Simulated assay, not measured.
Amino acid sequence: MKEWKGAAAICVNDLNEVLVVRGVGADTWSVPSGGIEPGETPEECCIREVEEETGCKVRIIKKLQVKDTVIQGIKVTTHYFEAEKTGGEIVVNDPDLNIEEASWKSIEEYKSLAQMYPEDFPLIHKIASLRKTIT
């Protein structure tokens, strides 16, 4: 079976909004993510993909989980990280030309949008809830 390994970032700002992206020609949203390149760690991939897809620079706060699934016959392993924005502004500069829009969305707004990976919402909601109690 073919395999794909990647990383995804759950990034919540001080307004308790989550950083999300929408693919070209799609109406579904997800957290920034992408494939791990040769010689790259999951953490390095996460940081690079967020910057490419959203223009935002981030640092990893902690590893959250690894999700294993099969999508269209491909074994998919995604490393999820909690990330914090350290700089940059929203600007899509995706070299793969897969991302059409990046945005900060409140948890309530994101909950109401079509989500590419609805199984990720409980984790995103948990991170936002924890973040809210800290700030």
Rank of each mutant, 00 (worst) to 15 (best):
R22H: 04
P32Q: 08
A128Q: 02
E17V: 08
A83S: 15
V21S: 02
V12E: 03
W29A: 06
C46E: 02
A8L: 14
K111I: 02
A26W: 07
R131I: 05
I61G: 02
S30C: 15
G34V: 03
K5C: 08
K132T: 10
V76P: 00
E43P: 14
P32I: 12
I90P: 04
E82R: 01
Q72M: 11
D68Q: 14
Y80P: 00
V92G: 08
I47L: 02
E89C: 06
V92Y: 04
E52Y: 13
T28R: 13
P122A: 07
D14I: 05
G73Q: 12
K132H: 11
V24T: 14
E37N: 13
P122K: 07
S33Q: 13
I127K: 05
R22T: 09
T133K: 12
A26F: 09
K67G: 02
E89Q: 13
Y117W: 09
K62C: 10
T54Q: 04
E82H: 03
S33G: 15
V66F: 05
Q72C: 06
R48F: 04
I60L: 02
G25F: 08
E44F: 00
V58S: 01
D120A: 06
L64G: 09
H79Q: 11
E52P: 05
I127Q: 03
T77K: 13
P118E: 03
I127D: 03
E84C: 08
